[in-house]
Design a protein around this nucleic acid. Structure first.
Lengths: 323, 323
DNA sequence: CGATATCTTGATATCGGTAACAATCGCGCC
DNA sequence: GGCGCGATTGTTACCGATATCAAGATATCG
């Protein structure tokens, strides 16, 4: 069933069908409705390849993802499936296809034909510069913004996330807070910066305990180290850059006999369902992955349409549970 | 840069270019190499839309995924990103595109034009029957096989996984084993069946403690219940249908003063990086998600090529760590 | 040497849409 | 009445690839 067939049935020409199903403004309202009704009735579907060929557009967006989980990043993938859900939802709703690619996979014609690229994953920024030069395609990257970036970046507001944790600690009267995490990661460095600055505004200092891995074990071990120190260095709040580290910390605290949150308050990051189901339920900074995906998609569509798009950060929020 | 352009440069006709880059057999080896060299030199890439139009194939596979994590399934998505990696890798390497779709998203022309469908997620089986009737497309489903299934199913060998856990328990002399999990899920029921049967072969009985959620909290709570029972019902081995439940169980055991694995041995399922980084490192049944994805893709490609494909199960293995 | 088989290349039509331009119709206005 | 205008529909020519059939060149064989 092609347009020609439908045209014959409706007693009009192909182009009228095309216009009736598409633009809609160039065709009489009655004929348009009649044709649309006929199309649904006969189960007609547009041939995407033909349209793409004629329009010289692939209506495809390549999403390049890092997919290998590792012991130091124990959640299933650096970025949750949810963000892909947001991207996919937004793009398919406007007739675009999501071409999922791993960073390792070969550059296929289909990939090269993409109308735009979305990059997810820790190496994204470096890849971005690389790809941008080679392909000159519209491109949007997920992550933290950097100074010289020429590409559009979407990410959640890590500074704000850090500040939210700090404000909470101040609000419940904590005086000695520790930040737990690896400052080499841009996003985490931002979380720390927001945390430190917000505390500084209240005249409080921050201490950093660096750990490279994002595991419970690392969190527990770091916390044991803190607990083993003398009384002079006692802390009453821990902000972990990640829920797993936070959970590890809590575990170590409880094992050591410290009360959470009475003696030491702990806040995690990411608001994972895992943290929510932890005992005790973990307080955490929430960022909406789904919205992030949607925003990435929208920005890219703007670029594809030849409009400008600005880098943007998504708001975060603090979810207070029992820690 | 189209085929026509390249043809002009090479001094041959379009069709020769097409044959040189494709089949390769119908064209002189020298001209073929010359043309291929020219193609790379001028950075020519095939127009996928044009080819698809002519061949009446979309070279696209729709992957339908369940993407919403929830409190009762706290890992980021019911199926890890890794399986998508396997699918994507395999398909893109043979020139197919992966069209990622959520179960909720609308049926777009691009989706309908797919050459095949891969279904992932818990509702997959029911959707399968539905879609198969409506679309008559080649389709492959991830999960456990069921009796009346008319579609091809790929999944890991849950029976074997259960049996491996049982064999291990027998090998280290355990006598009273408990299975922890929700038997309403097909895959988990299989794990239990394998576990129970393997123990039965050694004259041992099994006890089931059902819990619906896949969380640490549920695992801990179930285990506390077990510990609270009288001495007559003492258990010395727990097989959890999931790493999180296993971790919850271990936590409860340690809190109660039981030694793991000396008093009670625990084995989880999925071999998540999370479990590997747990303290103590969790023994678990491993299944290769990546290989699963690859196999799904291969089966589907067979179907698309008009060949037959059989349902298949992937082997599992036991990773012995410290529990 | 002629005929046939094989290898290699080309001309043409076609896949199913959409843009550009042309044509038709009805209407208002001078 | 004739002209111009907007609204609506149609004609034609493509987009860039590949299948089909045909044709020229070369090899093989009796």
């Amino acid at each position: 069933m092609t347009m020609a067939d439908l045209a014959r049935i409706a007693g009009v020409s192909k182009i009228t069908i095309s216009r009736a199903l598409g633009d809609g403004d160039l065709v009489n309202a009655q004929t348009r409705d009649r044709i649309r009704a006929l199309a649904t009735k006969h189960g007609y579907t547009l041939n995407v390849s033909a349209r793409n060929l004629r329009l010289r557009r692939s209506h495809t967006v390549a999403v390049v993802v890092e997919m290998t989980p590792s012991a130091s990043r124990p959640l299933s993938g650096p970025y949750p499936l949810e963000i892909l859900g947001g991207i996919s939802h937004e793009l398919t709703s406007v007739g675009y296809s999501v071409l999922l690619t791993t960073r390792q996979s070969a550059v296929t014609p289909a990939l090269q034909a993409a109308d735009g690229v979305i990059l997810l994953g820790q190496g994204a920024h470096d890849d971005a510069v690389h790809l941008l030069d080679r392909w000159r395609l519209p491109m949007v990257v997920w992550g933290a913004r950097r100074a010289g970036d020429r590409h559009v970046v979407v990410g959640s507001d890590n500074r704000e996330g850090g500040a939210l944790a700090a404000d909470r600690f101040v609000a419940i009267g904590r005086r000695r807070a520790v930040f737990l995490g690896d400052l080499d990661h841009m996003e985490i460095a931002e979380r720390y910066a927001g945390f430190r600055d917000a505390l500084a505004r209240h005249g409080l200092e921050t201490e950093v305990v660096r750990r490279d891995a994002f595991t419970m074990a690392a969190g527990a071990e770091a916390t044991q180290m803190l607990l083993a120190r003398g009384k002079g260095a006692r802390v009453d709040a821990i902000f972990a850059c990640n829920d797993l580290l936070a959970m590890g910390a809590i575990r170590a605290l409880l094992e050591h006999g410290a009360r959470v949150p009475d003696d030491i308050s702990v806040i995690g990051y990411d608001d994972t369902p895992l943290g929510a189901s932890f005992i005790p339920p973990l307080s955490s900074i929430h960022q909406s992955w789904h919205d992030g995906g949607v925003l990435l998609a929208r920005k890219l569509l703007q670029l594809i349409d030849g409009k400008r798009a600005r880098s943007e950060t998504l708001p975060t929020s603090l979810v207070v549970r029992s820690t």
